[in-house]
Design a protein around this nucleic acid. Structure first.
Lengths: 184, 184
DNA sequence: CGCACCATGTAATGCGTTACATGATTTT
DNA sequence: AAAATCATGTAACGCATTACATGGTGCG
């Protein structure tokens, strides 16, 4: 799937592996992230498959940059993927839910502490979606006006993050309340 | 992490690999699932580590069963894990969001069809949480009354699934509406 | 002087899926 | 007669993380 993230960005502009990580971090990173090492490895295999091609740009006083561009074959692969419907649900793993499931014989205070810690983290993330994420979209559109057609969709994925975090916080509040006031 | 799922169930009762998959499917499976092949492989390495031990039970007209039980070391590992707080957020990957992010140059009708298909799937899953999941908890408590202390926590994880699916459907409705009525 | 940034990669390890392999019994 | 259930596992492969490896520039 990381392949399609890469093809997606290469459909916007040419880019290096290093820069790709930067772009991913502030955009698709909220729902599809990758480490640099994986990005470099994936770029390599994608070039071997003919989905992308690269040229090396020499720089003075900086390491050489390997700049990637999408091939016709790569564009076709991206379109084919976009047009293929997802026919099942992805089950998301969640370690906190797992812990809660088996937490009956745990000390209540320790459990509550952990739930409150998670609440803080989700609160922070919510604010990130509400503040930085909106700004990041605006800035990208200012820099690349030809991508303004993409911005509404980026906004929809940002909105998902907002709703997800609101839901998670709501559930944590409910859950904390139930554990604080058992069997009422 | 699958190790802790297994330790968790083995803290309830002894069990075979085959049965473990059954229990996981209808309970933690909503937030932590595994294939049989992975379960068998994990059981093997856990026994080597001394977290669990097994005995073989011969059966007539059925294959032998290898029944696992938790060791003291295993119980300690489970407790230690439960008491260790999770200090960061897990980022959940979502292929649908990824697709939407790069969908600007896609045919609108194809995209809408895909979103509506997802809506159906989430609607089904929501009903599963609201119906089967509640019943499954009740039945387990009837069968193992000593686990009634665990049931409220299982219910909390079920509730998460319900809220998650409601949120996802709400977001899909919003998103479908925006794509049907662009820039109003 | 030390840290962050730019820029590239490889190797080892772990987690997870798919496919392969077997075979009797029970249900439809 | 075919499919599902019970019951066990191994092997190959793919995806992802962590650690290793290198080295110059710019900033505080």
């Amino acid at each position: 799937m990381l392949q399609y993230v890469i093809l997606g960005f290469l459909s916007y502009f040419t880019i290096t592996g290093y820069e790709l990580e930067r772009y991913i971090n502030v955009s698709t990173g909220h729902f599809w992230h990758a480490k640099l090492s994986q990005i470099y490895a994936t770029l390599k295999t994608m070039e071997q498959k003919g989905l992308i091609r690269s040229t090396i740009e020499a720089q003075e006083s900086r390491p050489d940059r390997r700049i990637y561009e999408i091939t016709d074959e790569g564009s076709k692969a991206l379109q084919a993927w976009l047009n293929t419907p997802i026919t099942d649900l992805e089950i998301k793993k969640d370690a906190l839910l797992l812990k809660l499931f088996f937490a009956a014989r745990m000390d209540h205070q320790t459990l509550l502490m952990q739930l409150r810690l998670q609440r803080d983290l989700h609160q922070q993330k919510l604010q990130q979606y509400q503040q930085e994420a909106s700004i990041a979209i605006e800035e990208t559109v200012n820099q690349y006006p030809e991508l303004s057609i993409d911005a509404p969709l980026w906004e929809m994925t940002r909105r998902f993050g907002e709703l997800y975090e609101e839901m998670y916080i709501r559930w944590l509040d409910e859950t904390i309340h139930k554990i604080e006031n058992p069997s009422t």
